[in-house]
């Protein structure tokens, strides 16, 4: 029995999602192997090798994996999977894209978005936007799981010294081709890794007003997020979206500004440690999950908040 964890990375460094997934893999108490598939990704394999407690790091370095297209990655993982009892990947757009292909090629039913591991065959996962939790048993010979990062702490990244095995590439797939990426550049932390998040909703009224949030975010070292309404309205790009079909986050502090609190948004943030809601509508559902609610006009409140945080920084 062993686990294969498929690492998420950008050919330069490991994503934190990988470290959360390794923590989930540790629950099984069996040897953990990590696959780093990419192109010119040697430094990623080296950092994977420094994660304590791994049985092996398998590195497959080839141009066909440069952009992590689902078709070639799934062929590679499918070839390796029969050596393991469990195959895990983060439940991010990376893992969601290729893991169901692996499951189908292995003829097993994937278990998506695992938030609890009760045993080698028993898993807990959210359904209905997290409004219910299903405990399921899989009798498939290989368990294919995507893991929700917020449910598992980050594993230590340093201290290990695992040997790196270079493994051969699998078959190629030439019917899909990567053309371009427009990745958002931000000086702020990534949403899924941030300790503090401040998110704006429809109440922000336009994209320019997000600057008011950014001022507060920078004082808190926070990431900036958004509700679906704000993304649909074009205030901010899609990668800001927190919710059922966007990013799932669980920071120490989540500040929801001008967000009414549709269940689809709550699904993405209700596991945050502390939730603050700022909304001028006292009936907004967001207040039902907020630890601290402030009924106020955000255009007055945000500048006040920025100023108050300045004062609280000074001794």
């Amino acid at each position: 029995m062993s686990v294969l964890v498929v690492a998420e990375h950008d050919n330069a460094s490991l994503k934190p999602s990988t470290l959360h997934t390794v923590t989930a893999a540790k629950v099984f108490g069996i040897p953990i192997h990590i696959l780093v598939a990419g192109h010119a990704c040697g430094s990623v394999a080296e950092s994977a090798a420094r994660i304590p407690g791994l049985a092996s790091v398998q590195c497959c370095d080839d141009p066909r994996y440069a952009h992590f297209l689902a078709e070639p990655i799934s062929l590679l993982v499918t070839n390796l999977a029969p050596h393991h009892t469990h195959v895990l990947a983060p439940s991010t757009t990376f893992g969601k894209n290729f893991m169901p292909r692996v499951a189908a090629l292995l003829d097993v039913q994937q278990i998506s978005d695992v938030i609890g591991i009760k045993g080698p065959e028993t898993f807990v996962r959210p359904i209905y936007a997290g409004n219910a939790l299903a405990e399921v048993v899989s009798r498939d010979r290989i368990k294919v799981l995507t893991v929700r990062g917020t449910a598992f702490d980050i594993t230590p990244a340093e201290g290990g010294l695992t040997a790196i095995d270079v493994i051969p590439k699998a078959e190629g797939f030439d019917e899909s081709r990567y053309i371009a990426g427009e990745l958002s550049k931000s000086v702020r932390p990534e949403l899924t890794a941030a300790r503090v998040i401040i998110s704006g909703g429809r109440g922000m009224q336009n994209g320019d007003n997000f600057k008011l949030l950014e001022v507060v975010a920078d004082k808190l070292g926070a990431a900036v997020g958004a509700s679906r309404a704000a993304v649909d309205a074009g205030f901010v790009p899609n990668d800001f979206q927190v919710g059922q079909t966007g990013k799932i986050v669980a920071p120490d502090l989540y500040i929801a500004v001008g967000i009414s609190g549709a269940i689809q948004h709550l699904a993405g943030m209700k596991d945050s440690k502390i939730i603050v809601a700022i909304n001028k509508d006292p009936e907004a559902p967001i207040f039902q999950v907020a630890d601290y609610g402030l009924v106020a006009d955000l255009f007055v409140t945000l500048p006040e908040l920025a100023e108050a945080l300045d004062r609280c920084d000074s001794p």
Binding site: S176, Y178, A180, G181, E182, T192, K247
Partner: peptide, 16 residues
């Protein structure tokens, strides 16, 4: 495509 980091463009041959 909408991905976690932003957007990504692919070309796929039909049928797809």
């Amino acid at each position: 495509r909408e991905v976690d980091g932003g957007l990504e463009t692919l070309e796929v041959r039909l049928p797809a």
